[in-house]
Write a protein that binds this DNA or RNA. Structure first.
Length: 446
RNA sequence: GGAGAGGUGGCGGAGUGGUCGAACGCGCUGGUCUUGAAAACCAGAGUCCCGGCAACGGGACCGUGAGUUCGAAUCUCACCCUCUCCGCCA
């Protein structure tokens, strides 16, 4: 949610910002109209309430000294009648106000965050800017296979049987494949907690509608989510653990020494992928359920841009240690998610398709989510609370990291060379073989 | 699933129809005293909204929502949450 001052005072600013995100100006004029109506109704209702409060106080005073004095009793009765009249008017005014506030809130919740100054303006991904590149795509003396071919021949991925169990867009990791996925999770969590200073969390994977509102998945993107309705309860499967992590401090005021907060969590993520029929139907790239290690920060208003840079480098560190070539993209205004004010994507090199694919997305949401979820902090003891800034990023998408490792570290014989930082998690495990200082994932017998 | 108890300010805890944004205690902030600290004493301090350059004025908020009433923290109803006991369960 944006600062209401945008649609109460700074219409032009809002209009410019929303235009960058592809909204037309009719929306803004509608918003400012309703906002004016709201203010007028508040003033009307509050004037009435003020009057009633005065009358009511008078009634109390008269009654306390009335005893059986008929003159005073009569005056009090008159006051009661007057108050009743005002009360009726208040009811009408409040009802009107409530209606207007509902429609205002509806509109306000549908407005995306505005892009930060440094964000390039553009309608789609063609306007994204490459910020830097790390590593060079590997040279293969043979035709590199894609992860599906590799995974199936190694007997570590089984999409056919996953389909039998749950339908399209699900995966089954078997044996050393499952071990590798779990090792990646462990490696990422250890790196972020031990080196980067994040606190590990195991959050709920089902969340309330309110939490989804807080981070901006709802009300606009209901069709992207899986919902469960059991015993009169509506819960949503998390599309990312950004949702529970960011909501940890919802409706709280954090004290000065509590900010910034760094959280990391492993979680499965559930997405309906409605509207992406026919896109990435093969392999682990786009699934209804995938694993992710998430990074979330709750910061003060001054440092969030710096914190975003740090978060990006935290995610980059994972790719560097796993020796996976990647590039960093600064997303343009039209390609950013709903809640973001600035987003960097990390894209990893996939030799089979000879392209960079998104493996992490790190966003600064400014105070956009904090307004929705009511996350505040004091910059010093006794200071007025301010809205915090929230950031989130993948650190990394585990399934896609699995893909990148298979594809980038494959050998001619179809085995996978395991990067050194993963050895401590996999050395000696079934399905892996040692050769000198190197460790390889080998073909399994099924 | 069955039975019961309860949700009040940062915390503890009063308040059962009017002057209650809410006693009291702790904690917090500022001051006096002190070489400094502690103690003692004095003062202050919530959040949101509306108007105002501001000082300030007004409105709302005692789990949430509706209702009764001239007037609700207090009465009624619904919902949510927490806790205790029994049952079941990883």
């Amino acid at each position: 949610m944006l600062d209401p001052k945008y649609y109460q005072e700074s219409f032009s600013e809002l209009e410019i910002g929303l235009k960058k995100r592809g909204f037309d100006s009719k929306f803004v004029s509608n918003l400012s109209e309703i906002s004016k109506t709201r203010k007028a109704l508040i003033q009307e209702a509050e004037a009435l309430k003020s009057e009633r409060n005065q009358v009511t106080a008078k009634v109390a005073e008269l009654k306390s000294k009335a005893k059986s004095d008929p003159a005073i009793t009569k005056e009090a009765d008159a006051m009661v009648l007057r108050s009743r009249e005002i009360g009726d008017k208040i009811k009408i005014a409040d009802a009107k106000l409530k209606e207007v506030e509902f429609s205002l809130k509806d509109l306000a919740l549908a407005i995306p965050n505005l892009p930060q100054e440094s964000v390039p303006v553009g309608a789609d991904l063609t306007s994204n800017k490459e910020v830097r590149k790390w590593g060079a795509p590997g040279k293969f003396s043979f035709e590199p296979k894609d992860h599906v071919a590799l995974g199936e021949s190694l007997r570590v991925l089984d999409f056919e049987r996953a389909g039998k169990i749950s339908g399209a867009r699900f995966s089954l990791y078997m044996g050393s494949g499952a071990s590798l996925e779990r090792a990646l999770i462990q490696f990422m969590l250890d790196l972020h907690t031990e080196i980067h200073g994040y606190t590990e969390v195991i959050p709920p994977f089902l969340v309330s509608r309110e939490s989804m509102m807080g981070t901006g998945q709802l009300p606009k993107f209901e069709q992207d989510l899986f919902k469960t309705s059991v015993a009169d309860r509506d819960l949503y499967l998390i599309p990312t653990s950004e949702v529970p992590l960011t909501n940890i401090h919802a409706r709280e005021i954090l004290e000065p020494n509590q900010v910034p907060k760094y959280f990391t969590a492993y979680s499965p993520c559930f997405r309906s992928e409605a509207g992406s029929y026919g896109k990435d139907t093969r392999g682990l790239i786009r699934l209804h359920q995938f694993q992710k290690v998430e990074l979330v920060k709750i910061t003060n208003q001054e440092s969030s841009l710096d914190e975003l840079e740090k978060m990006v480098s935290n995610a980059e560190k994972v790719l560097q240690m796993l020796e996976l070539p990647y590039r960093v993209m600064l997303l343009c205004s039209g390609d950013m998610g709903f809640s973001a004010t600035k987003t960097y994507d990390l894209e990893v090199w996939l030799p089979s398709s000879k392209e960079y694919r998104e493996i992490s997305s790190c966003s600064n949401c400014g105070d956009f989510q904090a307004r929705r979820a009511e996350i505040k902090y004091r910059s010093a003891a006794g200071e007025k609370p301010k809205f915090a800034h929230t950031l989130n990023g993948s650190g990394l998408a585990v399934g896609r990291t699995f893909v990148a490792i298979l594809e980038n570290h494959q050998t001619e014989s179809g085995e996978i060379k395991i990067p050194a930082p993963l050895h401590r998690y996999l050395d000696g495990k079934k399905g892996f073989k040692k050769n000198g200082n190197d460790l390889y994932m080998t073909r399994q017998i099924d």
